[in-house]
Simulated scan of single mutants.
Amino acid sequence: MKRLWGRKVSDLGFGVFVTILEHAARKRGVRVEKVERYFASSRMCSGCGSVRWDLCLAEREWVCEKCGTVHERDLNAAINIRDRALSRAVGDVRPAERAVAV
């Protein structure tokens, strides 16, 4: 297993990369959580949870029609994947409410 660690993911294939990742996590006592393959991570608003199904791949930034939050597609997807994995690991994880000055 150790001889494969220096290779790039593109050289190994994603399945072998995940196997190595799970092996390394087990060794350190850490758990790896997987998210469903067709989870709409980049189309879902990380603020309110609404999904924009008409979003095309060429759109790198978009505005949520429900709450008005501006999203950068990849960052939004990363936040949604993190929250989904945390929800599976520790229970329901919801975004914190924004503080409003009175």
Rank of each mutant, 00 (worst) to 15 (best):
M1Q: 15
K2L: 13
R3P: 15
V9D: 10
S10Y: 08
F14I: 06
V16L: 14
V16Y: 07
T19G: 13
A24K: 15
R28Y: 10
V30P: 06
R31I: 02
V32R: 11
E33G: 05
K34N: 03
V35L: 00
V35C: 01
E36I: 02
E36G: 14
E36D: 15
F39V: 00
R43S: 03
G47M: 05
C48M: 06
V51G: 11
D54G: 05
L55S: 05
C56L: 14
C56Q: 13
C56R: 14
W62G: 08
W62K: 10
V63R: 12
V63N: 06
K66P: 03
K66W: 00
C67H: 05
G68C: 08
T69E: 12
V70L: 08
H71P: 02
H71D: 02
H71C: 03
E72W: 07
D74V: 02
D74H: 05
N76P: 05
A77P: 11
A77G: 10
A78R: 06
N80K: 03
R84W: 02
A85R: 04
A85N: 08
L86R: 00
S87H: 02
S87R: 04
S87A: 00
D92S: 12
P95N: 03
P95M: 01
P95K: 04
R98E: 11
R98G: 13
R98F: 04
A99K: 14
